[in-house]
Write a protein that binds this DNA or RNA. Structure first.
Lengths: 235, 235
DNA sequence: GCAGCGTATCAACGCCGCGTCGGGATTGTC
DNA sequence: GACAATCCCGACGCGGCGTTGATACGCTGC
């Protein structure tokens, strides 16, 4: 059963196989053992894999339930046995990505005192890395946020975490005298994290005024540093 | 068919056209062509008004052609006499807003030398003001960008303008020695303008990590200043 | 006054995507 | 061999979109 409301478990298997579609129905004759249970799980990840593959060429709105079903080798009504809606599929994909991102987030900003610039750099690099590795899903996330309350909540959660971590780090830097006082740390964090999100998004879609992906770090890092420390070369 | 109307015509302008025409500037004029049945014009603006009103309570996707038609007192097929699609209606609304914004943009950053902080402050204030005055339309714009290539092009045009203006101002400040060299001015401008857009959007929707609207300026301005001048108190 | 044209309107149609219902197949268990 | 899951799908109803074809209402000109 899939429940869309909360974080639910997603198959650990990497969906990237992108093996081809429409073949899950291979008969293979009853031969062999363990044909029974697995089939369901396989179908489920086939749907997820199809979704991720299709997202690389079209937007979520342009992908129909039928596309997903056919891609996984089942009929449209069967799709509903696995997911309550196509939105739930995208949500599952995003959920998985978010979980990955949360892992990377941990303890990145703990030893700032040693070399602030380097640590902040790593933190930004990590974020860019996670989302860059699944850009299609990242973009889908940003897009269905506008339509799905669940997606909005999920995304908010991630942003909130980053903002909290960033704000805590800024406060720590201020406490040890490395950063000057200024606007509330949390407000600063909100603005900087938002900037990253938007710039990253633009960079992925390649829309009008955007930064080249390779230059993201060298442009954004100095802005973070000067906003936080008042200089791009914090000691 | 029919082009979208005499007033804010939303031309199927080719993409990349610096923000679009919207030469609706002359309300009294427009007498040039055949006498336009007033009734028709009224209907057209009734549709636009309905759209703007409905946008204050629902997202563009949740507004159907039927809603717009009924709101303007006509049937659904009649709607198509005035606009080719509901998307075109929203586009017309955005186009109008963009035109207003373009006006405000002019010559804001010309006398930076006199009092940089104050001038930048005014520039940001102006932008926030224009979009804040029609937040429903602003939000709709951000949302249909994901779906409509025209909307994307339109928005890109606006962003491009601001980025260009901002970049030029930064370069001017660097030239007169008021701002230190650093990452390319344009890149800096892209990041800062993007930050504004995203933070403004979050603030309007009230989504998770957002800044209160009244605090936008006091948070964003210091970030702009320190990113550009390396200090929040440029001389 | 009436022919004629351009404006404005709508009932009815066809299409497509969504989600559901109810019945059927396969498999595993007692 | 009966029962229960699990899995699958044909066929339906709904709602939104955009089009067609048939009108009705001026106004213009003769």
């Amino acid at each position: 059963m899939i429940s869309v409301g909360g974080a639910f478990i997603v198959p650990l298997m990497s969906p990237q196989g992108s093996g081809a579609a429409a073949d899950a129905a291979a008969p293979a004759a009853g031969r062999g053992r363990r044909a029974p249970r697995v089939s369901g799980e396989e179908r489920e990840s086939a749907i997820l894999a199809t979704a991720e593959r299709l997202l690389e060429e079209r937007s979520p709105q342009q992908i129909s339930v039928d596309d997903l079903a056919r891609g996984a080798g089942i009929s449209r009504p069967s799709f509903y046995f696995y997911f309550p809606s196509k939105e739930a599929v995208f949500l599952a994909l995003i959920d998985r990505l978010v979980a990955q991102a949360d892992e990377g987030r941990e303890q990145l900003l703990e030893h700032l005192a040693e070399d602030p610039a380097a640590r902040w750099r790593e933190a930004l690099e990590t974020i860019f890395g996670v989302f860059g590795a699944h850009r299609a899903v990242s973009l889908a996330g940003a897009e269905i946020r506008a339509v799905s309350p669940e997606a909005r909540a999920l995304w908010s959660g991630v942003m909130e975490q980053w903002v909290a971590d960033t704000a805590a780090a800024i406060e720590a830097e201020r406490a040890r005298g490395a950063a000057p006082a200024g606007v509330p740390a949390r407000d600063l964090a909100v603005a900087l994290v938002s900037m990253n999100e938007r710039v990253l998004y633009a960079s992925f879609t390649g829309e009008a005024p955007a930064l080249a992906e390779e230059r993201l770090l060298e442009v954004l890092l100095p802005i973070w540093l000067s906003a936080i420390y008042g200089t791009t070369e914090p000691g």
